[in-house]
Design a protein around this nucleic acid. Structure first.
Length: 568
DNA sequence: GCCGTTTTCGGCCCGACTGTTTTCAGTCG
């Protein structure tokens, strides 16, 4: 993606300026690299609207550099520095323990420009002879080099790690060594993907507490072991920090280690502006702790509303909290039904009855079955007759188990934008979710046109996993999402937020773009088995991160009102 | 190089940990 490419250029500029001793330029470039990587939109579109300066950290000089990159694919200042340091920063920075300064020293003294040069130098023990390096550094670099070569993706979908994280937490709680254990970090913010795990705890005995984490069968080894922080590698391929906290500063630590980093920096600046200081030990006014025991104290001490973890991304939530204008976002317990589920009748692995029982056990009030339609052959899609037979069984099971089940379909949008099943059978369905799975091209107009035709058919209730992205596997389809949002709004068709951890689709930033258009949303687990019904939680998390209120999510409605909302 | 409800100049988040040093620099989050 263009934004990531440009962010990488600024990140390298930051490395090179840091080597040059230009500390503040380096910080400025680093900051803007983060901003650009986090944009929800192609920076070229922002440039076309002449709004580059609105991006956090972009001033006159950086604006000029961005424009040059967009127009010429290069930045003069970058090219000049790169001549001096022809080094693969991107690759080398991935190795734990290597920052800009050490990379520079390796290049200047040993001519190391990439990972294979580094390996040769390590093997011939040249590193340990360098000033500022030693035996231990050489050994650590050797280890982290191996790690980085064998490592998988640096971030994994939250839903993939979530069960392990909860098990690890329970393991610590059950040890009896702690008065309190809480998961913080991006897991608590319910980000779509996480890069590590942060656990905060109040230990009864600090020395014993450090030992117990290593004993968990989720842990593969220790990385760092200090007084108040232990870092271990988890078998799922990411690291986990356990931090031991004192009770009086637990809220401050929880706030601090929940992040995001950008959110925290903004909060700290507000503290400074009011003559205070904020760190992980509390909010201080002239050395006196004025808040720290709870997060609520911290936020109120800064003169703002409490901010839910899912919103803490420094994308306007702090300004809203200062103005006491935060939205009342949808709660996890407010979701009454699941709107996207599959059974053995197409490509699922549990029966209608099994799915209903688990849905009830999970606290839901109803479930919608949305098996695939006939054109999706790989998923054993059903034709009209198949659905009529299945629908009879759903009605029968629903009355036998006394649990409301709605008859739906995940309906293929065909190559020409027409629908995979006829009007007659669709009219017998309670809920029709249309999907793009096949014949997707690189042409945005063509793809968008198919979706829009489906929206305007008057036969569907919603669009499933609208962008089609698969995290780590497939980029989003080329689609004009703003047009799709507008068409959905006009036609009264919902957009789905799909909670499958690899989909997480819509992404939260697009949800946020749609909140004021009048469009409504459905949250679905896309479960293909009973265990995955709990993925509904991740769909809800995305709704929250997108600032959605209860009234914008139709499966917060009671069964009766949900049915009414489905009229087509 | 950026930025402003103390500032258009003079600040810039800040503490833990490690390793190589004898008081600190580099890295990380």
């Amino acid at each position: 993606m263009f934004n990531d490419e440009l962010a990488e250029v600024f990140s390298e500029l930051a490395d090179m300026e840091e080597i040059e001793g230009q500390k503040w330029e380096s910080i400025a470039y680093r900051r803007v690299a983060m901003s650009i990587a986090g944009l929800g939109e192609d920076i070229r579109d922002i440039s076309r609207r002449n709004e580059l300066r609105k991006i956090d950290g972009v001033g006159a000089a950086i604006e000029k550099k961005i424009r040059q990159y967009i127009e010429e694919g290069r930045i003069t200042a970058y090219d000049n520095l790169k001549k001096k340091y022809p080094v693969d920063f991107k690759q080398l920075r991935k190795i734990q323990g290597l920052g800009a300064k050490k990379i520079a020293s390796l290049y200047v003294n040993l001519g190391i420009t990439n990972v294979s040069d580094l390996r040769v130098a390590i093997e011939s023990h040249k590193i340990s002879k360098l000033p500022g390096f030693g035996e231990k550094t050489e050994m650590n670099l050797s280890k982290s080099l191996e790690m980085s070569l064998s490592a998988g993706p640096t971030r994994i979908p939250l839903g993939e790690a979530y069960p392990d994280i909860m098990e690890l937490k329970d393991f610590l709680v059950d040890s009896g060594l702690f008065d309190r254990v809480t998961v913080a970090g991006s897991t608590r913010r319910m980000k779509e993907t996480i890069g590590d795990v942060d656990i905060l705890a109040i230990a009864k005995d600090k020395s014993k507490a450090a030992e117990v984490l290593v004993e968990s069968d989720r842990v593969s080894g220790t990385v760092v072991r200090g007084e108040s922080k232990i870092t271990v590698n988890l078998k799922i391929g990411i690291t986990c920090d356990l931090r031991l906290i004192e009770e009086g500063s637990f809220g401050a630590a929880l706030q601090y280690f929940t992040g995001s980093k950008e959110h925290n920096i903004h909060l700290r600046n507000i503290a400074i502006a009011s003559g205070m200081k904020l760190n992980e030990y509390g909010l201080f006014s002239e050395e006196r702790q004025v808040a720290g025991r709870t997060e609520e104290e911290i936020y109120s001490g800064l003169g703002m509303e409490y901010i839910e973890p899912e919103l803490r991304e420094n994308t306007g939530e702090i300004e809203a909290a200062l103005n006491h204008a935060l939205p009342d976002i949808v709660g996890y317990e407010q979701i009454r039904g699941d709107t996207h589920t599959h059974t053995v009748d197409s490509d699922g692995s549990n029966t209608v009855e099994e799915m209903m029982l688990r849905a009830r056990q999970n606290g839901l009030e109803y479930i919608v079955f949305t098996n695939h339609s006939k054109s999706l052959r790989v998923a054993n899609g059903l034709d009209g007759a198949g659905f009529r037979e299945l629908n009879r069984r759903i009605d029968d099971a629903s009355s036998r188990l006394d649990f409301p089940a709605l008859k739906g379909v995940e309906l293929e949008i065909l190559k020409d934008g027409s629908l995979d099943l006829g009007e007659a059978v669709l009219s017998e369905m309670d809920f029709v979710l249309a999907s793009l799975h096949q014949f997707v091209t690189g042409d945005s107009d063509e793809n968008t046109g198919r979706v829009v035709k489906a929206i305007q058919s008057g036969l569907i209730n919603g669009i499933a996993h609208p962008t089609g992205r698969l995290i780590g596997k497939r980029e989003p389809y080329k689609l004009d999402m703003d047009r799709i949002i507008a068409e959905c709004s006009a036609a009264g068709v919902c957009l789905e937020i799909n909670g499958d951890p690899f989909r997480s689709d819509l992404p939260a930033d697009i949800v946020r773009r749609a909140i004021n258009t009048g469009v409504k949303f459905t949250l679905g687990s896309d479960a293909h088995n009973v265990a995955d019904l709990s993925n509904l939680r991740f769909a809800t998390a995305i709704a929250r991160r997108g600032w959605l209120g209860e009234e914008q999510v139709i499966n917060t409605l009671t069964l009766e009102n949900f049915r009414k909302a489905l009229s087509r």
